[in-house]
Design a protein around this nucleic acid. Structure first.
Lengths: 188, 188
DNA sequence: AGTTAATCTTTACGCTGTCAAGATATAAGC
DNA sequence: GCTTATATCTTGACAGCGTAAAGATTAACT
């Protein structure tokens, strides 16, 4: 009878409503029923699009990860040398979470990252931001000319990601992102 | 009537049962009612000792943090020079979470760390592991003799903590703690 | 037009955190 | 020693949660 029995694009609306709730009320306040209500839909409607609450959360994380990856890509594109690309990417990585600290816990809170910490192969299923770093680091190795043994290459890769991710974590956990200019801290 | 109407030390028992549940079933499976049941006590009994679920969680985190800090202190005590103390502490930091990855999310999942990232003052309320690092880093600066300007000291402090914490995060998130010997990776 | 599949609603269930009221054990005061 | 008070624990209740089943509504296809 009603002209809006079908929502039209409920799946996407649920994802966006969920992200909005996280930004406005925090992740702890997020519930399937609230997300459904925000879309003006019954509390069981989401089950037509997601088998689980977990599956909705995964879709939301995918969406946020796309924003994150896009920001990293823009930073890389804006730099010329491979070394500058790495530094720009690190700054963008930290900057992203300084502006949205809630996203840090949301993306990394329940561990599930796939990342082969080796330089030898390509792994399609690797976490996209990590794949980006690996690409740029490969360029850096080629550009610098030094033929490092594989073990040292992997250590270098881990060191860069660790310090960048660690700085983002510290900024978000300590809440001092406003008093310290993290992006200005030299990475190497 | 019953000889065990009063538990004796329910508060501590609840804390330990909660930590046990996290280790055996994961943090997501933890509920106040399960913790109470594990202590063979009614579901509302915890409210005589904790105003909230959050307050019980905070007490559990305190307990885990004490184990963590104790391990760091042992590592520091086992080294001679300040430089070795820093390296030993970093390895212990990473080692702690490699052996208990669930503790990483549990301790750092909901951001709340207090840490004044400056070298000039003492702050009693700072996160204990951070206070330890600050102490040892101060020793290191004195030992190395180089009189760095305060800004560079603080950057050094942040860099060390970031890379160590970041490595622990990566180890826990990627689940490769078994294939990579994180403790062997040189920190500096 | 009639069938099928996708989408959404309604209803129901068990689990959760929390509160209020009452029961019971310990401690304190006389 | 008895009473009183306080801390501790139980019972019962409530709203909110995730989820499943059954039915209603719409869209798509033949």
């Amino acid at each position: 009878m009603s002209d809006t029995y079908h929502h039209g694009n409920l799946r996407q609306a649920l994802i966006e409503a969920g992200i909005r709730i996280i930004n406005e009320q925090g992740e702890e306040q997020l519930s399937l029923r609230k997300v459904a209500a925000a879309c003006e839909v019954s509390h069981a409607a989401p089950y037509a699009h997601f088998k689980d609450k977990e599956e909705l959360l995964a879709a939301m994380q995918n969406s946020v990860n796309e924003q994150f990856t896009a920001q990293l890509q823009r930073a890389i594109a804006s730099a010329t040398s491979a070394e500058q690309k790495i530094l720009a990417m690190g700054r963008a990585y930290i900057s992203f979470f300084c502006h949205k600290p809630d996203y840090f816990t949301f993306l990394f809170g329940k561990q599930k990252l796939v990342a082969h910490l080796t330089m030898d192969e390509e792994h399609e299923e690797d976490y996209p931001p990590f794949k980006l770093l690996k690409e740029v680091f490969r360029q850096y190795l080629a550009e610098s000319g030094a033929a490092l043994p594989p073990a040292e290459q992997e250590v270098g890769l881990i060191k860069i990601w660790s310090s960048v991710h660690g700085m983002a974590a510290l900024a978000c956990m300590t809440g001092v992102e406003t008093t310290i200019d993290w992006e200005q801290i030299q990475l190497q």
